[in-house]
Design a protein around this nucleic acid. Sequence first.
DNA 1: ACGCACGGGTTCATTGAATGAACCAAGGGC
DNA 2: GCCCTTGGTTCATTCAATGAACCCGTGCGT
Lengths: 178, 178
Amino acid sequence: MALKKGYAMQDCSLARTLELVGERWTMLVIRDAFYGVRRYSDFLAHLDIPRAVLSGRLRTLTEAGVLDKRRYADSPPRDEYVLTDKGRQLWPALYALLSWGEAHALGSQPARRIYAHAACGRRLSPGGGCEECGVGAVPPEDIELHPGPGADHPDRQDPVSRALLTPHRLLVPLETSV
Amino acid sequence: MALKKGYAMQDCSLARTLELVGERWTMLVIRDAFYGVRRYSDFLAHLDIPRAVLSGRLRTLTEAGVLDKRRYADSPPRDEYVLTDKGRQLWPALYALLSWGEAHALGSQPARRIYAHAACGRRLSPGGGCEECGVGAVPPEDIELHPGPGADHPDRQDPVSRALLTPHRLLVPLETSV
DNA sequence: ACGCACGGGTTCATTGAATGAACCAAGGGC
DNA sequence: GCCCTTGGTTCATTCAATGAACCCGTGCGT
């Protein structure tokens, strides 16, 4: 983002954060990573993002330590991008934005996805906690993602959209090859 | 932001949210609104944002119902921009980003501002709650903003930066004329 | 051995938004 | 009448996003 040549706000933590994750597409990439998307081609198909932008974002996020690029097959060489611990700690921010959108930005449209506490099956509160279990902040690995009433459009036939039609725990790699 | 001509992700609540508040500068404008900034010229001076961009953002946010543009003096005609309830509900998202930045993006630099629970004076937890009082999520109107160890640069002499050098409750209009 | 498909990119021309300086207009103060 | 402040708009320039085309290493069918 580089807020100008950026000296003025340089040491404000919000500005610094936004320079990294506040760029167009970046939060959507991170959201998909929470959904279990790990491969370049899956991000590409699901987000419908220009290849050059995706390459750039993945590189930036990897350099910043939010994603980890790791080789998972040697022949042919295949890499995957996985959220680091630092990246996983973005969950509260991501969920807060998502939750605000559900309350205010979505014009009475049905939610596409539902976030539930895996332990009890109860929907997460807008604050990201579980009212059933009294957990103030459910960590992403304990969250199960279900398709909502207004799930994906029928014309979205990419492997990721199809894989997300069945309940699925966050951070667990998607089985897109099925 | 307008993710492309934007149909693909149109009904995803995160994408919709980001189209509004995910644009460059927008979150910083909202943060300043929480700090008590209300006037065009104060946003301008504190953020060091191009005038055209500020005008555009204020208009977009007003149209979206995040800010309310209200006349506070008739002669000369003066308007101020105040967070609506919808806008105030962005606090958890904003604080989550800020808090992540404090933990990860700020390279061991001292924080510029400290957020404390007005009732007890204790610093807010990274989750935005007060551990002293056991409040899970302190609402912004109960938060007091203090200058941190690494407060504003000496070369930032705009009225807003100066006003923020004294403790101050969120959402309360800044006295920039003093 | 040959050709083709796939994953994961890069390059490049075009479009569109951000920047920053200049200009504008209404009102007040002197 | 003149200049200052507030809250803008306009415009030329710079910079990033878009999308199509191209590239390269590898495996696979024949």
